[in-house]
Simulated assay, not measured.
Amino acid sequence: MSTDYQQARVALGARLRELRLGAPGGRLTASELARRLGWPNSKISKLELGNQTAASEDLRAYADAVGQPETYPELLARLRGFESHIRSWRRQTAGGNRPVQEAHNTAQANARTLRAWESSWIVGILQTPEYARSVLSRFADLHQSPRDIDDAVRARMKRRELLYASGRRYHIILWEPVLRALICPPSVLAAQLSHLSGVVGLETVELGIVPSGAPLKLPPGSGFWIYDDHQVVTETWHAELWIEDDDAVATYLRVWSTLRESAVYGTDAHNLINAARRSLNPG
């Protein structure tokens, strides 16, 4: 959880406590409020200390119970403000690129069902070390961050262990142009495609490829991950967005499902990967 996110949650909790102590009928104790709401005392404490994220229904009930229902829109706006929080690349990479990789390792390790769409490069968990080094070097140059590339690559490679952990399922869709994008030397891309071909059929991975000529019901757009159908991570050039708003997550799930309709799997996916690899060495 980012510092900005936690600070915003603590601020919301402080506002809730302020409303409880300033209730129109006189200040309420946490126990009195818990009885009114039918909640355990611990829930009041966790919300007010910023140790638990309130649901929108919690905020409405809280505002009503303290006799200030008119504050609900304000509380909801605060919640929406940090449910989709931005982690700027400049701040994240100020100490190097390895911490960013470790944060993603943790996020993926904590999820059981992971869905991804990528239209720009092969996703990190399926990368070879050499391919990862090329990609991470490009971004270190872009963001002018410390060049701890070797440490960042090692951290990203650590993530690959999750592919072989039981109880976890990856549903990954790549756009075919990703297979041909020379964001690394051709020899590195060739080795990356060989590795990718070996992923097809892996028990924990469902890998689909959307052919370049396939009819699309939506434009490819930016890549994103969905963790356990309740959190989305997507990137812009200046930041990552970590999204937890239910409606927004539902939108990304619809996008993923729609793009999946254009994907091919199994032998057809193999053929696209192998064709891209052959194009690097037509002789």
Rank of each mutant, 00 (worst) to 15 (best):
V153S: 03
R154E: 15
R156G: 05
R156T: 06
M157A: 04
K158H: 14
R159L: 06
R159I: 10
R160L: 11
R160Q: 15
E161I: 08
L162A: 03
L162I: 08
L162F: 08
L162Y: 07
L162G: 04
L163Y: 03
L163E: 05
L163K: 06
A165K: 12
S166D: 15
G167T: 07
R168I: 14
R169T: 15
R169K: 15
Y170W: 15
H171D: 15
H171F: 11
I173Y: 00
I173S: 00
L174S: 00
L174C: 04
W175A: 06
W175N: 02
E176N: 13
E176T: 14
P177D: 10
V178F: 02
L179C: 03
A181D: 14
I183N: 10
C184E: 12
P185T: 07
S187P: 09
V188S: 01
V188Y: 04
A190T: 05
A191E: 14
Q192T: 05
L193R: 01
S194D: 15
H195W: 10
H195C: 09
H195T: 12
H195R: 13
H195S: 14
L196M: 11
G198D: 12
V199W: 04
V199A: 12
V199G: 05
V200G: 05
G201P: 02
L202Y: 08
E203I: 06
E203W: 02
E203C: 07
E203F: 04
T204Q: 14
E206F: 01
E206K: 08
E206N: 11
L207Q: 11
L207C: 12
I209K: 02
P211C: 09
P211G: 08
S212W: 12
S212P: 06
G213N: 14
G213F: 06
P215S: 09
P215L: 07
P215Q: 07
L216N: 07
P219T: 12
P220D: 07
S222M: 13
S222Q: 14
S222Y: 13
G223N: 00
F224P: 00
W225Q: 00
W225N: 01
I226P: 00
I226Y: 00
